[in-house]
Write a protein that binds this DNA or RNA. Sequence first.
DNA 1: AACGTTCGCGCGAACGTTCGCCCAATCTTG
DNA 2: CAAGATTGGGCGAACGTTCGCGCGAACGTT
Lengths: 350, 350
Amino acid sequence: MLKRVTLKEVAARASVSYQTVSKVINHKSHVTGETEERIYAAIRELGYTPSYTARSLRSQRSNTIGYSWQPSPPDQANPILDEFLQSMFRTAETCGYYLLCFPYHGEVSRQLDTYRDLIDTGRVDGFVLSVVNYGDPCVNYLLKRKFPFVAFGHLDDLQTFPYIDVDGGLGLHMAVDHLLSLGHRKIAALAWPEDSRVGNNRMDGYFNAMHEAGIEVQPEWVQRGVGSYEVGFNSTLRLLAMPEKIRPTGIVAMNDLMAIGAMAAIRQLGLFPGKDIGVTGFDDAPTARYLNPPMTSLRQPVSSIGQNLMQRLITYLETGVYPEPVGELVAPQLVIRASTTGVETGELSN
Amino acid sequence: MLKRVTLKEVAARASVSYQTVSKVINHKSHVTGETEERIYAAIRELGYTPSYTARSLRSQRSNTIGYSWQPSPPDQANPILDEFLQSMFRTAETCGYYLLCFPYHGEVSRQLDTYRDLIDTGRVDGFVLSVVNYGDPCVNYLLKRKFPFVAFGHLDDLQTFPYIDVDGGLGLHMAVDHLLSLGHRKIAALAWPEDSRVGNNRMDGYFNAMHEAGIEVQPEWVQRGVGSYEVGFNSTLRLLAMPEKIRPTGIVAMNDLMAIGAMAAIRQLGLFPGKDIGVTGFDDAPTARYLNPPMTSLRQPVSSIGQNLMQRLITYLETGVYPEPVGELVAPQLVIRASTTGVETGELSN
DNA sequence: AACGTTCGCGCGAACGTTCGCCCAATCTTG
DNA sequence: CAAGATTGGGCGAACGTTCGCGCGAACGTT
């Protein structure tokens, strides 16, 4: 931590006023090519780097974006965190921004305290939110304070804010269509509780696809639970114990973990996933392809979402308007593997 | 972004000089209990929050810690990232620090540029490094600049810097001992290439444990590769094709993914992991318990490592000395499941 | 030749803190 | 009881930028 080189020293060396140096490096004023060169030379020779702190004190901007997320339970990895973060701060960096990560607090008040602190102390210029639940308190808070943010995920249409979301309904539609195309008619769903926003979005796709195929969904086909392995396992045992007439031959799960539980239950009954019962997951966790059998799942285009969100936010910060469209749904990709087709895809070069 | 409340306004309301207010909130000077109360009342009434930017401009400290990590390949989730990050910024927050995450660049020069920029612009006070490889360029750079950092992982003893590392050697020793106790004698290892620092640390434990048990390690037992599923799979096929005399009955892998590949290979030969061949992994990825069979693996105490690292770094920043010991090895935990014992542990409440 | 315009750059003034020094009043001490 | 020590608080000066304004010279236009 040696003494830092300042604007004034650069200016002295280039024989101009230090304010001129500032203007040059910010491209705020036209100067002669000759003086500009002199200034850049001085900068290079002295190894000058502008002080981020002084700069943001004066300009009232921190060039920092805040992001917080709900930690995963220990038995459930967050399959997209790494990719999402990397895509965000990679994009941010090219625009001169950095990403500040801060803790997620369970209690709403502490959660909001953290956001307030970051805003009031001037540490961040905007936030990226991962919106999962109905009536997210952070969304309301930021809307009320008119503080810039973009969200991964959206709510109902009552509150309008910039977001990108994966079209989970479309995803499940694709999964169901896939099973239908394989000849399945009795297709069950491993769903989240009814108060799950993401879950309901996805389930809509299930219901629509079944309806469009002219199949009446039996109420027993919809098994709800917290999204754990155990729920998937036990629900599947129940499904496969049903009378032949309504016993499902296909199962779509709202996440990978329930699908993994389902496959375990299927095997425990002496059946084989993909041969006897088709199973699909959601998220395409990295291990999905290494399961036995490899699992069909829906992959979210995480990198492009992160990049897109960050770009929108920065655009807003620098221009004052959000690029259209304010909200956007993107399609997931159905990655087909043996848990539905019964045949190895050759994706693994064994 | 309304006008912010400043020290001066608080001071005016409390009828003191604004510098006194500063001293009070920083506990730098003793004042009458009475004036102190007046000041705090004014702060509360006006809703004052100190400007982070102005504060750090003056005090030359950003109260921010930088962290960057190598992104995982898409087929390999980082099983500890979420927990590590959460533990770090949770600890940081209680001390008034935040965590700045920035991109990892493949090319060394760009990587160092990023570190330099963060230092020279004054954005961070210190770094947390994840040190994986021999001769990490960032370590050298930061040592040379005498810039504060702590590391998750360590190198040889030539360069000394504060670190915490999981004792991978001990971990593999435990894994081998576990297999020995189950009666295995011919134990193979799925290893990383020889230039892998982490890999060599772990392999030392394998060799030591075998040596202590009086078993001569056959050269063919050590199969090296990049740590992928495919490497685990193919290496295991080779191992199990060996003549009865040296054909291993136990396999320790340097990571979970190779162990998963090994289990797949075992099954493909009509054998069953845990019954016929014992398999252990490393990292205890969340999905390890949901595999068929559930996999024995070594778990790193990630949360306590993150917390500990952050505390050490902040202690150094505030006192100028690193707490002893400067380097510390912590033991991983062997999580025993059916891939070695052959019996379900009941960890899953099926 | 007189007159706007643009160009290139300088200058003073913030931005909101913390730091070091000073001073007056009170308290201790031999 | 004089002299030093302590306490409570004020004051000016940074910290390193960016912002807005202004001014002289060069330029092109009637």
